[in-house]
């Protein structure tokens, strides 16, 4: 029994020592990673960039909005596959690192962000920021909301790097490091696009969203407060869709009401007046515009932002 206890103690302390050494080394790798993968884009922004206006959202922002043509000092900080919960955490992170844009923050929302059916996926998205678990309270709260036991995983310091290490290590080997930090990554049309769009439509038709996620509005409010506190104007946009299910209108309506009540400008590109993207040849797949259509979208967006700007100036708000 004594022997077993000694063995257990040796194993425990070995794990503890390896954990501390490994996490110190991984911290270096993580903080100096500026490749596109594994948080490198965000690191690059937090360390080297400043902007008057930034766009946040998923790949529907990074591949559909050419921020270079919108104006000077406008950056596209959106990341592929990252949705509302993640982006609201990024806004809190930017506040912590004093990297909020000087003037305007444009946040793209998706219908998927609003329904309870996707809540678990949205929380999982935040786990890409687990490196900041003990640095930003808002991120910690979101991660802890996953399960009551989540916090215990962080007793192991190296857990913060879980899931990133393949890429951190390979970035070091520099074989795949893409350290270009372009604002816009357009999707070029291919011969398969219409097939992908129709297939995607079939899949989307099967998805049934039923219940509004009440936490969504609380997080949106918290994000709004961060912007207000730092004198940053928050604008919410809802990018165009090829297929727009009926019940999405309900979600859009609730977001619109919230924005009106909180004086947040809201632009819904699925509203009737924006019918430029209803043809299949505008789309790369069911959710992404191809390059040509994305440039048109950027142009329309720019005009809409100008309208918002003049409206704000007129109202003095």
């Amino acid at each position: 029994m004594k022997k077993t206890l000694i063995k257990i103690a040796v194993i425990f302390f070995s794990i503890l020592i390896i954990d501390r050494i490994a996490s110190a080394k991984l911290r270096d790798l993580y903080e100096n990673n500026f490749c596109k993968h594994s948080g490198g884009d965000l690191n690059y922004y937090l360390k080297f960039q400043n902007a008057d206006t930034i766009f946040l959202g998923s790949s529907r922002v990074s591949s559909m909005i050419n921020t270079d043509s919108i104006g000077k000092n406008v950056l596209n900080v959106a990341s592929k596959g990252k949705h509302f919960y993640y982006n609201s955490c990024v806004i809190h992170l930017m506040e912590k690192y004093k990297k909020l844009p000087r003037k305007v923050l444009i946040l793209n929302l998706e219908a998927e962000d609003i329904y309870i059916e996707n809540k678990s996926d949205l929380i999982d998205n935040v786990f890409y920021l687990k490196y900041y678990y003990d640095k930003v309270g808002f991120i910690k709260d979101r991660i802890d909301s996953k399960s009551p036991f989540e916090k215990y995983k962080f007793l192991l310091s190296s857990y913060k790097f879980n899931g990133e290490n393949f890429l951190l290590a390979t970035n070091q080997l520099q074989s795949i490091c893409d350290d270009t930090h372009e604002n816009y990554t357009p999707l070029y049309p291919t011969i398969y696009d219409s097939v992908k769009v129709l297939k995607g439509k079939k899949i989307q038709q099967k998805i049934k969203y039923t219940k509004f996620n009440d936490e969504f509005l609380n997080i949106l409010q918290a994000t709004n407060l961060v912007c207000r506190k730092n004198n940053v104007r928050l604008i919410i946009i809802y990018g165009p869709h090829y297929y727009y299910p009926k019940n999405f209108e309900h979600a859009s309506f609730r977001v619109k009401s919230f924005c009106e009540n909180n004086h947040i400008p809201y632009i819904d590109f699925n509203a009737k007046e924006f019918n430029q993207f209803k043809t299949i040849d505008s789309w790369f797949d069911i959710v992404h515009l191809n390059k040509k259509a994305s440039l048109l979208y950027t142009k329309i967006l720019k005009e809409e932002l100008k309208k918002v700007d003049s409206l704000i100036k007129r109202n003095g708000n």
């Binding site: 070995s14 794990i15 490994a22 879980n162």
Partner: peptide
């Protein structure tokens, strides 16, 4: 031998922590 078995288990454990997909 214990000096092979336990380090191998610890190696597997850290592979899980570092490289496993927690989600």
């Amino acid at each position: 031998p214990q000096y092979i078995f336990y380090p191998f288990c610890i190696l597997l454990f850290f592979s899980i922590v570092f490289l496993g997909r927690a989600e």
